[in-house]
Simulated assay, not measured.
Amino acid sequence: MALSYTKVTHNKTYAQIAPTLPHLSAVHKTVLIVGGSAGIGKATALAFLDAGAQRLALTGRREDALSSTAAEIAAKYPKANVMIFAVDVTDAKGMNDAVACVKDRLGPADVIVNSAGVVGPLKPLASSDLSTWWSAFETNVKGAAVLAQAVTKHASPSATFLQLSTAGVLFPASPGFPISGYAASKLAVTKIMEYFGAENPSLKVMNIHPGVIVDTPGGKKMVEESGVEFDGDDINLPAHFLVWTASEEAVFLKNKFVFATWDIDELKERKEEIMSSPELILGLNGFPRHT
């Protein structure tokens, strides 16, 4: 049995997080998806459009992929106003200019999803090329910090900032699955987001493990290079879960670390406990022993 916070877990979307539910409506929200041209970012963009969003901005490194996604969106959602920005998340000026442009043309971003990320080499640290290994920190850590600074300057003061993380930051290291660069960089991002949320209490910041999505470029890389077989989760599960976390119903998860696979009904049942305790934040097993 997989370890979980809720008794019920999901590997595909379900009725309670359907983006078409009226109380999950994004019709009045400006949504910014960083890393939105493919994979989970693209699926999340489509989910917010299904939730009624009319103002959408996507960033990514490849202009051709962004243009293709924008054309696909225009054909399916002709009323949506979509902007694209070919910019690397580590480019501080480029990201600042992009978020500022979103503010000027669409209104300040109400929801920001950071799905940009690099897996890095799946090799033991001793045999890794350190320049490639470090690339995970450049994109995953510096990129998140760059985006956070742009958000504080140009997004809505009460925006929701959803940072994609990984369950790999929580489990013991395994020699059979060498992801030291990826896991350590995501661990750093998780703590950065804790501070970002604490320093900006008007924002709703969350770290979210999207599940194991094996049909994305990063997911395929993990399967091919590790040789580990994963059952895999449907890509619409994190996409729809992210729409739910951006809703008022999920405010109690502010500054927490959650899994898209967890059942939201069970989470809501524990709302008061989660809000009033250190549940669902990083800690040290067995600490404190004495207070």
Rank of each mutant, 00 (worst) to 15 (best):
R105G: 12
Y14F: 10
C101Q: 12
F257T: 06
K256S: 14
D233P: 01
L164K: 02
P178H: 08
G283K: 07
A45W: 01
Q163T: 09
V113N: 08
A2P: 05
T261C: 02
T69F: 01
F230P: 03
E194A: 09
A144M: 12
T44R: 06
N96C: 07
G39K: 00
E266R: 00
P108E: 15
P172Y: 12
F241R: 14
T90C: 14
G232K: 07
L58V: 03
R289M: 13
A188H: 06
E229S: 08
G176T: 11
W262S: 04
N11G: 07
A18C: 11
A75I: 10
T132A: 08
I179P: 00
T245F: 09
G143D: 14
V34S: 15
A155Q: 11
D129F: 06
A18G: 06
K103C: 13
P19N: 13
A155L: 09
K76H: 10
M83H: 10
A167F: 03
A45K: 02
T90E: 14
D88P: 01
I235L: 02
E225T: 05
A71C: 04
F196H: 03
H240P: 06
G143R: 01
A45M: 06
L147F: 03
Y14N: 07
A57M: 10
G283R: 04
H23A: 15
T291W: 05
T139N: 01
D104R: 04
F177H: 01
L130M: 15
G117E: 05
M95L: 10
S247Y: 08
M1C: 11
K268V: 12
P124D: 09
V243I: 15
L21K: 15
A260Y: 03
G286R: 05
A150T: 08
W134H: 06
V34I: 15
P178C: 13
N96L: 07
L125F: 09
D233G: 05
K153A: 13
S156Q: 11
G283P: 03
V141I: 10
